[in-house]
Design a protein around this nucleic acid. Sequence first.
DNA 1: ATGAAAGCGCTAACAC
DNA 2: GTGTTAGCGCTTTCAT
Lengths: 338, 338
Amino acid sequence: MAGIDDVARLAGVSTATVSRALSGRGHVSPASKAKVEEAAARLGYVVSSSASSLASGRTRNVGVVVPFLNRWFFSSVLEGVQQALLRTGYDLTLYNLAGDGDERATVFEQFLLRRRVDAVIAISLELTEAEVNRLHELGKPLVGVGGPIPGVRTLIIDDVAVARLATEHLLGLGHRRIAHIGGDLEFDLDFHLPTNRRLGYEAALRDAGIEPDPARFAPADFTIRGGYHAAKQLLGAPHDRPTAIFAASDEMAIGSILAARDLGMVVPRDVSIIGVDDHDLSDFFGLTTVAQFPRVQGEQAVELLMDELEPGHADAEPSATPLPFELRVRSSTARPAE
Amino acid sequence: MAGIDDVARLAGVSTATVSRALSGRGHVSPASKAKVEEAAARLGYVVSSSASSLASGRTRNVGVVVPFLNRWFFSSVLEGVQQALLRTGYDLTLYNLAGDGDERATVFEQFLLRRRVDAVIAISLELTEAEVNRLHELGKPLVGVGGPIPGVRTLIIDDVAVARLATEHLLGLGHRRIAHIGGDLEFDLDFHLPTNRRLGYEAALRDAGIEPDPARFAPADFTIRGGYHAAKQLLGAPHDRPTAIFAASDEMAIGSILAARDLGMVVPRDVSIIGVDDHDLSDFFGLTTVAQFPRVQGEQAVELLMDELEPGHADAEPSATPLPFELRVRSSTARPAE
DNA sequence: ATGAAAGCGCTAACAC
DNA sequence: GTGTTAGCGCTTTCAT
């Protein structure tokens, strides 16, 4: 295993020059730079990350904390993060907080603090002030995606606006009896997102002169199955059955489509359905949705981080960068039947 | 930021004792161990992983290489790996080989070799001999899950037997015209798994005295949409329409169920459908399937690794540990109609 | 632009 | 069982 001295010897320069040439920090003449690079290639030299980290205090590694791995949204964000990081030459250490609270404490107290990472990206996670502070004390930049984290740079989607857009699409088509499938309480605890979507939905309704009816709301757990059961409930109403459903996620919307079919209804003739996400499956189901772009969100989080990590260090103020979203009309929504 | 000396001073012992007490390597009297632990806790001391790695040569970090992140199977294995690793006190550095070949080369030449990881877990990836050798030279243990990697400890599922079991379930119910949806060529290149499943399907058929009919095979890409289109093809046959479909994955099987419905068929009355995986959604769709247990597979991979990483180091020989699978009969299969 | 050398914060012989 | 100490392989002043 070739070391930096081997490279230095072969290139006929000092180890300091090798270090500078390879890391890009400090000035090196083009000539020696070339020599060093050739020598390194010849020897198959790669820096030892531990030695480099120990000496420099930088690890070129970022910790990514996610609440779930096997949900479309999270794995997509993760994919974006991973790719952006790889391009930047950073490694990604993954922490899945799926388990109990114990696990969470371990991750924070033992893992993140081992000085193994330069920074942390938290995906759809609401960190406690204590957790944020701990990271701050250590001088580790933190950026959040999705979850609102006080005092931290965050990428957030305007869930109220998203919900409003979806609801207005339905209103625009002429629907008046619009039901909503949102998150259940448990979900809301961590993400607040369902509440915001419900708020947007209600606001749009009121603006159209419609008073939201609690009977037209059903909670679910963001899965297809959950959406299915919620939709059956909603669509089974004997009087004034809703002519449209706005589900707070595409998976729940897909569940709703299946529920409608099982009830013998035809979408969108008998009921219009709209979701949020633009999930992999949405196109297949012809689902109209408000698309968000999780991969891009992951990439943006990395960019934000690099601003803080790399030289210029604008001492990034806490801020909330809004994320784009977009209505994608497919075949699950239409004017209500007369 | 407290260092090991601070702890040593506070505990009234040497740094060596602190190191021993905290790492569990070497003997320390219970008394000093207690003192050290208390001091460490008081100071909020956590070892610097880079210093520790540099001095010891161990990183307590394993690299995990996956081809996809947003597919149920992979994210489930990953979840198992992550959890097992966390319990063992190891970190997990994630490499997603989603992109082009370039990315793959970078990961191998730059990242894995930076001596950042003690070992590598490859999920459903067929590594080249060169890649395996590179890792071997560096003395990094490697275990594979799913993909057959020559000369490496691997956890593999007996795909031939899985397919045979699924097909025999159908045969046992009395089906004779059984179609198969398998992987397309592109998929096969990397995983070989579709071929094996097709082999098992054909073997079961032959054992029952039925000659496999190429017209009853349709390739797809392991997605719901792919399964949907393949099933439509199969079920649209004007003569001798199959009475059952064995799909090589649950997602394709679910696509088949949807296709059957769209053709006005009732499952299982008009056609029986069986898959492989026991995907999250399978229970919801009442899909009969041959379950495999990806989370457990991930955990097992970690166990295998620890055998090599921890003291006893039995110099683990290449071997292929078989993975369990199990028939789960639900409501998508039944006797064929007369 | 380059080199010499002093660490970075631990671990592991080795000596007691 | 515990302390002393020499590195681990780099990066980064500080000179030049």
